[in-house]
Computed example of a mutant assay.
Amino acid sequence: MRKTDTRLDNKEIIAELKQKDSHFASIFAEHTQLDEKINYLEKDLIKHSSCDDEIEQMKRRKLHLKDEIYKIIDKNKTQSHA
């Protein structure tokens, strides 16, 4: 996988995987939810300053999910080119 791969670069395969792979759809949805929650909490750091540890945990989980998502994408790209 190139470092420049993004969701946009993989839009078609992501859509396909979300339809045919329930595990992928689940982790993709969780990643999206975490992203939204992290962004919301970080926008108002004063209000949510007590959530710093929770935000860090969510970021670690989100990164883990992202790694898993891209492993699945790469595996499917390899299989479709074989």
Results as ranks from 00 to 15, higher is better:
Ile38Tyr: 04
Lys75Phe: 01
Asp67Gln: 12
Asp9Phe: 10
Lys37Val: 02
Glu12Lys: 11
Thr4Asn: 12
Ile46His: 02
Leu41Phe: 02
Met58Gly: 04
Lys18Leu: 15
Ala15Gln: 14
Thr32His: 09
Thr4Val: 13
Ile13Cys: 06
Leu65Cys: 08
Lys66Ser: 06
Lys43Leu: 03
Leu8Trp: 06
Arg2Lys: 07
Asn10Leu: 14
Phe28Gly: 00
Lys59Leu: 14
Arg60Ser: 05
Tyr70Ile: 15
Leu17Lys: 02
Lys59Asn: 01
Ile14Pro: 00
Ile27Ser: 02
Ile38Gly: 06
Glu68Asp: 12
Thr6Ala: 11
Ile73Cys: 07
Glu12Gly: 06
Ser50Ala: 03
Ile55Arg: 00
Arg7Phe: 06
Leu17Thr: 05
Lys11His: 07
Leu65His: 03
Leu65Asp: 02
Ser80Tyr: 08
Lys20Met: 13
Glu42Cys: 09
Gln19Cys: 06
Lys75Val: 05
Arg7Trp: 04
Ser22Lys: 04
Ile27Arg: 02
His81Pro: 13
Thr4Leu: 15
Thr4Met: 14
Arg60Leu: 01
Lys75Asn: 12
Arg2Ala: 04
Lys11Ala: 13
Ser22Arg: 11
Thr6Gly: 08
Ala82Arg: 07
His81Cys: 15
Lys18His: 10
Met1Asp: 14
His31Glu: 09
Tyr40Ala: 15
Thr32Met: 05
Lys47Thr: 00
Gln57Ile: 15
Ile69Val: 08
Leu65Thr: 01
Ile14Asp: 00
Ser22Pro: 01
Tyr70His: 11
Glu42Asp: 11
Met1Ala: 12
Ile72Pro: 08
Asp74Asn: 11
Asp74Ile: 04
Asn10Ile: 10
Glu68His: 10
Gln33Cys: 14
Ser49Ala: 00
Asn76Gln: 12
Lys3Met: 13
Gln57Lys: 10
Leu45Asn: 05
Lys37Cys: 07
Thr32Ala: 09
Gln19Trp: 00
Lys11Thr: 03
Thr78Pro: 13
Ile69Met: 09
Ala25Val: 07
His64Ala: 13
Asp44Glu: 04
Lys75Leu: 10
Gln33Phe: 08
Gln19Tyr: 00
Asn76Ser: 08
Lys75Ile: 08
Leu17Met: 03
Tyr40Phe: 09
Ile13Leu: 05
Arg61Phe: 03
Arg60Cys: 00
Lys71Arg: 13
Asn10Trp: 05
Lys66Pro: 01
Asp67Arg: 12
Ala25Trp: 00
Gln57Cys: 09
Ile73Tyr: 11
Glu42Ser: 03
Asp74Arg: 09
Ala15Cys: 15
Gln33Asp: 15
Phe28Cys: 01
Met58Tyr: 01
Glu30Ala: 03
Glu54Lys: 09
Ile38Asp: 05
Gln79Lys: 10
Lys59Ile: 10
His48Arg: 01
Asn10Pro: 12
Ser50Asp: 02
Lys18Met: 15
Glu30Cys: 04
Glu12Tyr: 02
Lys75Gln: 10
Leu65Trp: 00
Lys37Tyr: 05
Lys11Ser: 13
Gln33His: 09
Arg61Gln: 14
